[in-house]
């Protein structure tokens, strides 16, 4: 009886030591979870999730304080990727309508612009060039299409233009299944 107890106790101590040692020795310096979440978000910085940008939303999700379905620009693909990363169940998107909007970039009607710089202050990625009393313009390649510049504009000269498909960005469609057992797999 005593022998058995002793054996178990010794084994427990031994394994405990091994575990403790390996926890220190083989510690994984992985990305903190918020970084991993942040890397999945589309970085539009649009605030449609109710946070002040992608990073705060990522941190809120990491802390378990926010749902994973609040990113319309990321759409369903992002939601599913988040669900996989966080081991949560996929949930329908909160704002399906916003998610289905085509990707767009802001465009300033330069004749109408008064050079008030309000949109420059609103742009989260510094994608608008211009100075006070000077006409502004959007750097198309850097615009995320977040629409945050639209409300501050006093003359409503900023419009969203859907991104057009060019031969370089065109994608081959998913092959149409002509067979009868269509919905397989």
């Amino acid at each position: 009886m005593i022998a058995a107890v002793l054996t178990i106790a010794i084994m427990a101590t031994l394994f405990g030591l091994i575990l403790g040692y390996s926890a220190i020795r083989f510690r994984v310096e992985g990305d903190p979870i918020a970084d991993q979440i942040d890397s999945l978000l589309p970085q539009t910085q649009c605030g449609q999730c109710g946070f002040a940008g992608c990073r705060p939303y990522a941190e809120a999700m990491a802390a378990g304080e926010a749902q994973i379905n609040r990113c319309p620009p990321g759409g369903e693909a992002t939601m599913i990727a988040l669900a996989e990363l966080l081991g949560r169940d996929p949930v329908p998107l909160e704002d399906v309508e916003a998610a289905e909007k085509p990707k767009s970039v802001a465009y300033i009607v330069e004749e109408e612009c008064i050079g008030c710089t309000l949109c420059i202050q609103a742009c989260p990625v510094d994608a608008i060039m211009g100075a006070a009393k000077q006409m502004h313009t959007v750097i198309v390649d850097e615009c995320t299409g977040c629409e945050l510049c639209l409300p501050p504009c006093p003359v409503e000269c900023i419009h969203m233009h859907p991104l057009e498909t060019t031969p370089l960005t065109w994608r081959w469609p998913f092959p149409a299944r002509t067979g009868s057992e269509g919905a397989h797999g």
Binding site: T44, C54, P124, D126, E142, T169, W172
Partner: peptide, 27 residues
């Protein structure tokens, strides 16, 4: 071909979001 162009599109999106993240952080 479908898979290849989808992968390229994903890479473009990733590049774009990396750029946006860098610019946002800088701002």
């Amino acid at each position: 071909r479908f898979a290849k162009t989808e992968i390229w599109a994903q890479e473009r999106d990733r590049d774009k979001s990396d750029l946006a993240r860098r610019r946002h952080e800088a701002r």
